[in-house]
Design a protein around this nucleic acid. Structure first.
Lengths: 208, 208
DNA sequence: ACAATACTTGACCATATAGTCAAAAAATAT
DNA sequence: ATATTTTTTGACTATATGGTCAAGTATTGT
């Protein structure tokens, strides 16, 4: 019986194949988007037959959903880590650094997410309106408290987060453009770190 | 004979139909990406038959290319306008404001472009490596001169541009996420303007 | 060793979609 | 008015693709 219809504990083969298929699917989906990807591409990439893919997943969408669900957890982790009791500017700069590192280390995940949002978030809109909204609201309150306490300059907390998401993920999602413009110089990620760190310190350091 | 194979001066009907088709195609492509869009969708949106679409354009890709080519001109215009002889901070903030305004007024174009870049710029890579790279290099030199003259703070000019592109286009490309997080409050675009203006002034104002 | 179960895949089906073609309809020129 | 040209589309073809199925192969339990 197909894994996807079973309730039993997964076998070793099931765990490994599932992981291999998801790995291949991440490659394919992040490069071609959901609609531009075919099960055959994923099958070839994973080195298995198409029916074998469909033995582990009910359909193409199920693979995509699984990837997005796993991604969301990792994606939000750095924001959860923003600590009200820490030093405000260091906390925010650390958040920026973490997000940039994730864009560097997980560009496929970043592109997968970007594709999903660009298409109107057909699979994760509920999560955006639920968990992400809650979390952002909560952390925006933290930033607001820091502002009230005069620890950082006055900025709109939500737009602060938007700008951090935009600037960090840009290096993964638009890497083709970044590289085209950068030419054969240094790795853009190397120089992006200091630039962003400097930018957010300038933005957040209170006027004396 | 099909318009696409003709060299004559286009008739009134040809001009109008072409425009109507491109308008419909922009809707469809920006919502669904290239691979997720069908000629039938464009035909329905434009209120004509599929063969009629293919009477004016050789194939689906030709429509897409036409849209991207038209887009690139508008897209780069604000950067061309960056004037070395103007007040540095005002020039850059004006550039930011113009880019944000374009994201607000032309979200479909922004999404079309984002989709194209995310998929690895299959149609516009030459333009990125040519015109965009040249222009960016040239304007980066302008910014460098301003820095050398002590008129603005020391920042990496290229990353400055990346951050401007990222933060402004984010409001168009990720609008679903922005709106999900923002809830039913004010229009995000309204408050984004002042936020970004403030951010770039903080970043660029030289330390006294 | 043997049976039962889990895994794998070639061949196939149904549907979607890019693109063609010939003939009708509309517009234009004379 | 009539001929010519341009525009429009229903019907069609070829191919790609999501998904099924039955039969074969490997693995596991006894």
């Amino acid at each position: 019986m197909a894994r996807s219809q079973t309730t039993r504990k997964p076998t070793r083969i099931q765990r490994e194949k599932t992981r291999e298929i998801l790995e291949a699917a991440l490659d394919v989906f992040s490069d071609n988007g959901f609609r531009g990807s075919t099960i055959d591409m994923i099958a070839e990439r994973a080195g298995v037959s198409k029916p074998n893919i469909l033995y582990y997943f009910d359909n193409k969408e199920a693979i995509h959903k699984t990837l997005l669900a796993a991604l969301l957890k990792t994606w939000l982790a750095p924001l959860y880590a923003l600590d009200e009791s820490g030093d405000p500017i260091e906390e925010i700069c650390e958040y920026v650094a973490q997000k940039l590192k994730m864009a560097q280390e997980f560009p496929r995940e970043s592109k997968l997410f970007a594709n999903e949002i660009l298409q109107g978030a057909p699979h994760v809109l509920p999560e955006l309106q639920g968990e992400l909204k809650e979390l952002t609201q909560q952390k925006a309150d933290v930033v607001s408290n820091w502002i009230k306490a005069g620890k950082i300059a006055q900025v709109d907390p939500r737009h602060l987060f938007f700008s951090i998401w935009a600037t960090t993920q840009h290096y993964a999602d638009f890497d083709i453009q970044v590289r085209a413009v950068s030419g054969d110089g240094k790795d853009p990620f190397e120089t992006a770190g200091p630039f962003l760190d400097n930018m957010y310190r300038a933005l957040l350091t209170p006027a004396t």
